[in-house]
Design a protein around this nucleic acid. Sequence first.
DNA 1: AAATTTTAAATGTATCAACAACTATTGTCG
DNA 2: CGACAATAGTTGTTGATACATTTAAAATTT
Lengths: 160, 160
Amino acid sequence: MKEEFSEVVQQKNFRSEQAKAALNIIFTANQLEEISRNLLKPYDISSEQYNVLRILRGRHPETYALQEVRYRMLNRWSNVSRLVEKLRQKGYVERQPMEGNRRKVEILITKKGLDFLDELEELPISRNIYDKALTRDQAEQLSSLLDTFRSNLEAIMDDQ
Amino acid sequence: MKEEFSEVVQQKNFRSEQAKAALNIIFTANQLEEISRNLLKPYDISSEQYNVLRILRGRHPETYALQEVRYRMLNRWSNVSRLVEKLRQKGYVERQPMEGNRRKVEILITKKGLDFLDELEELPISRNIYDKALTRDQAEQLSSLLDTFRSNLEAIMDDQ
DNA sequence: AAATTTTAAATGTATCAACAACTATTGTCG
DNA sequence: CGACAATAGTTGTTGATACATTTAAAATTT
C-alpha cells in the first residue's frame, strides 16, 4: 500500500497550514529514518549508532566527553552510555577515563570505526540518494525554513 | 544545555546541502515530537495514540477498519492492534467485528474520545504554538518542499 | 469443492526510547 | 573545613518500535 502524505492526511482538515507542515515534517522524518534503517540493516548498526559514529569522526583524532556526544545527538533522550557501549563492543569506539576529572569519560572513534564509515559511504546508493531528490537551492531553502520554525518555536515555548 | 541545529552539527562538514537538510528534518521532527509529548504528558496519552484518535475523528461517525487506521498513521510500523487496545481501555474508542467480513475489525471513536480531543484543543498553548512560529506562506512553502523531497526520494528508491 | 494463496489481525520478541533514580565525583558557600 | 548543591555517568523500569511469526478467514485456483 503506497503512502503519500496528501492521501494519508486528506481527511484531517488541518486547523492551519502550520499544523499541517508540522505533521508533514514528522511524516517525512519517519520515511527518512526508515530509508536509513533499511540501508544500515545489513551492517548491523542502528541509525542512532551510525549518527554517534559520525559525531565522533567529526572530532577525530580528538575525543568527546560522553556528555558532549549526547549534546550533539539527534535524539537527546536516547541513552548515550548504552549506545556507546554497543559501539565499543563492536570495536568502533574506545572509552577512556578523563585525566583530571574522574567523573568524565572520553570517547574516541577507532580506526575500525573510521573504516566502517568509509565503507558505508562508498555505497553508491548512500552517495546520491538525497542529492537527486532536491536541488541544492531547494535544500538550502528547506533548511532555512526548518531553522526558522525551530527557533521561533523555541522562543514561544520559553515564553510559556 | 540549549540545542541549536547549527551548533549541534557544526563539525559535520556535510557532503551536501541535501544531506544536511535531511538531518535537519529529523532533528526538527524530534523537537516537535518532544513538544507534543510534553503537552500530552499530563493527559496520559502518547503522541501516536493522540494521532490515531484524530484519524478516527476525521471519519466519525463512520468507522475505519484497523488496516485503514494503520495506513493513515505517521509511523506505519507501530503496532496498531496494541495502540487501539490502549485507547479502548481508556474508553476513547470501540471495536466491533465487521459484518460480512469476519477478519476485519471496525474502530470507532467514542463520545468520550471526541470530548477528550476537544479538551486538548481548548488549551491555549496547543492552539497557537505552531501558527506563530511560521507565516502561512512559509508553512505552505515548507510543506511543498517536503512533498517534493519525499516524492523524488520514493522514485529514486523504486529504481534501485 | 478441496487445496492453495492472500489478507487482516493478533501475538511474540528483541531492541530501543523515555524517563526516574542512583552513585560517584567535583564545585561552592557559609 | 564541612555541608550541600551541582555535574557526569550508570542502572533500572516501563512502554513503544520494528519487525517475524502465527492464527483465522476469505479469495482464488485447479
